[in-house]
Design a protein around this nucleic acid. Structure first.
Length: 563
RNA sequence: UGGGAAGUAGCCAAGUGGUUAAGGCACGGGUUUUUGAUACCUGCAUCCGAAGGUUCGAGUCCUUCCUUCCCAGCCA
């Protein structure tokens, strides 16, 4: 990871340092919170928020709470709560004992609502949803007061009590804050505080049939928990006055402040819950944890590391500009991290037979293969070498193009860790497809160098035809082929990448691969980074997911040459 | 068109009136290399949305304009 010391402070860090310096922070301990609504799976966008909130607490010796914002029981579920917690832990953050739920505060919230009513600052409104919309006005026209706005306090108290007791059907009444129907900020035009909802709540069951709204719950929850810096995304800027209104209600003695940053957008990716849900529901992907999904569970299964994602988020920075980050930056971070830790293995994905004619039949030699050239501590493992091998089909060319320095008739290349070989001839089937390549090896070149020190330009990976294992390899690519899915036609489905998953059923892999478990970071040399699939891989049927390719300047060059 | 925000390279992003406008990604050139990977070296904004103005001096201050995003849930 790069020098944290040298990275300039972002605007939130500056605010915190100022607050700390000015003694505005109780006990000099900042308190942040990550407040997801448990209505879906966490995605890459959430990672930014998690890193900001937990990261700030870490950096300034503060505390970060996990608060499940569970005020809309219709959409929420325990399943989501569990996955959210597991995803945060995977990222390496821990809230310790500070696990809270907005629903923990329902009683307190109710008391505060009562108090507002008694003070004439809230009223029970009988306007229907449609009427309320009419009365609210528009962006350019002020709203007008509800006929119920001046309902007597006693009547409000009675009605609110009965709302709570379940005497009214959904939609008949709401509790509203009496603020200003003419405010240029629509959020201040008497926002709803409570609505009636007969739904089973994951935690409070049937205890309540009125549920508090975000603008009421969130600021007060922050205040109750002693949050000092309440950090959210830009679209809540307009809610800040409502936030400040709620936290200045009489009797609330802690005043948190809200700060907004730009959410994370990445090209080629879709982060909308609705659209992701559509992909899942219509089997366009295998589920929320499909390795092509931008969900935390998806990228985890794909083989991304939490360290890479944290580094990515830190490189993106925190600001108020709504931008779109290049997908390539994320891939860079994944490669950079995996390069340092992935175990190197040889896997031939598109095999063609290579027969070493002058190598004894039946002989097996074992070579030491380093597990990671970046990390000598990582040790070595053995690979078997025999007369018949597999190499990648694209590592041989019958008529080599300019600049090609892999195997062709008469050319000598190195087989990684093993010998120098020179191609001599090819076998073809009736259609002219190459079925085998014949070569000779130089016994003096054992280990990959020769006494005379002669160089070869190409080094290929390989696998012994008899001493290898077969595996399914899933070549994942971007789910969408357009930078901004849907921008061209208006329908993001039009930009689905038909090649986002290419399955190789019978890849040839060195035996060492059988020891790889999901969670182990692998590099198939010259092919990319891979991880055993956490759902489908088993000792009987190995399945590997491609996490990300290696950078490939050769294919770039080929493109330039028009091949 | 009301309100709230934001505009510095292809993409992020420092910069808070004073040398030739940080850094990363991407991209180009090169060196090393038993991964055409990695690593390393190197190039890449006479210019800061635009136009005026203040100033000895402006990306930084002022004015006007332009562009983009967010807000009219009894969602969060």
């Amino acid at each position: 990871m790069e020098n944290k010391e040298e990275r300039p402070l972002n605007f939130i860090e500056k605010i915190i340092e100022d607050d700390l310096k000015a003694g505005r922070v109780p006990n000099d301990t900042i308190v942040t919170r990550f407040p997801p609504e448990p209505n879906g799976y966490l995605h890459i966008g959430h990672i930014k928020s998690i890193c900001i909130n937990f990261g700030l607490a870490e950096k300034y010796n503060g505390i970060c709470h996990l608060r499940l914002d569970d005020t809309n029981p219709e959409k929420e579920d325990q399943e989501y709560i569990d996955s959210i917690k597991s995803d945060i832990h995977w990222l390496g953050f821990d809230w310790g004992k500070h696990e809270y739920y907005a629903s923990d505060y329902y009683d307190q919230l109710y008391q505060i609502a009562l108090k507002l009513i008694k003070e004439g600052k809230a009223y029970v409104d009988s306007l229907s949803a449609e009427q309320m919309k009419e009365y609210r006005g528009t962006l350019t026209e002020p709203g007008k007061d509800s006929p119920d706005r001046n309902r007597p306090i006693e009547e409000n108290l009675d009605l609110f009590e009965r709302m709570k007791n379940g005497e009214f059907p959904e939609g008949t009444y709401t509790l509203r804050a009496k603020i200003d129907m003419k405010s240029p900020n629509i959020n201040m035009r008497d926002p709803a505080l409570y609505r009636i909802k007969y739904a089973d709540h994951p935690r409070t069951g049937k205890k309540w049939c009125i549920y508090p709204m975000y603008d009421f719950t969130h600021p007060i929850s922050d205040a109750i928990e002693g949050i000092t810096h309440s950090i959210c995304t830009l679209e809540f800027e307009d809610h800040r006055p409502a936030y400040d209104w709620a936290t200045s209600i009489d009797g609330i003695d802690h005043t948190p402040h809200q700060y907004e940053f730009a959410r994370l957008n990445i090209n080629y990716l879709l982060m909308s819950k609705r659209k992701l849900l559509y992909l899942v529901k219509n089997n366009l992907v295998s589920g929320w944890d499909d390795p092509r999904m931008p969900t935390v569970s998806g990228i985890r299964r794909r083989g991304y590391s939490p360290e890479a994602m944290k580094d990515f988020v830190s490189r993106v920075g925190v600001a108020k500009v709504e931008g779109v980050v290049d997908y390539s930056l994320m891939e860079f971070c994944v490669r950079e991290d995996l390069n340092k830790r992935a175990k190197r293995l040889m896997a031939v994905l598109d095999p063609v037979k290579l027969i070493i004619d002058n190598y004894p039949e039946g002989k097996i030699e074992y070579f030491e293969a380093e597990n990671n050239p970046e990390d000598p501590e990582a040790g070595t493992h053995k690979v078997a070498f025999t007369r018949e091998l597999y190499i990648e089909r694209e590592d041989f060319m019958e008529n080599p193009v300019k600049g090609y320095h892999r195997l062709y008739i008469g050319n000598e290349v190195r087989l990684k860790h093993a010998y120098y070989v020179t191609a001599t001839s090819v076998e073809k089937d009736t259609e002219g497809n190459i079925t085998a390549i014949h070569a000779t090896y130089d016994p003096e070149s054992k280990g990959g160098t020769t006494p005379d020190g002669r160089k070869v330009k190409g080094t290929s990976h390989w696998v012994s035809a008899s001493e290898c294992i077969s595996a399914e390899v899933r070549q994942y690519d971007k789910l969408f082929k357009a930078e901004n899915p849907g921008a061209a036609t208006g329908n993001y489905l039009d930009d689905l990448n038909p090649d986002s998953l290419i399955i190789i059923r019978d890849a040839k892999i060195e035996k060492e691969a059988a020891t790889a478990k999901p969670g182990d970071y692998l590099q198939f040399i010259r092919n990319g980074y891979y991880m055993a699939d956490s759902r489908d891989s088993s000792p009987e049927h190995l399945v590997f997911n491609r996490t990300v390719t290696l950078k490939d300047s050769w294919s770039k060059m080929k493109q330039k040459m028009g091949l």
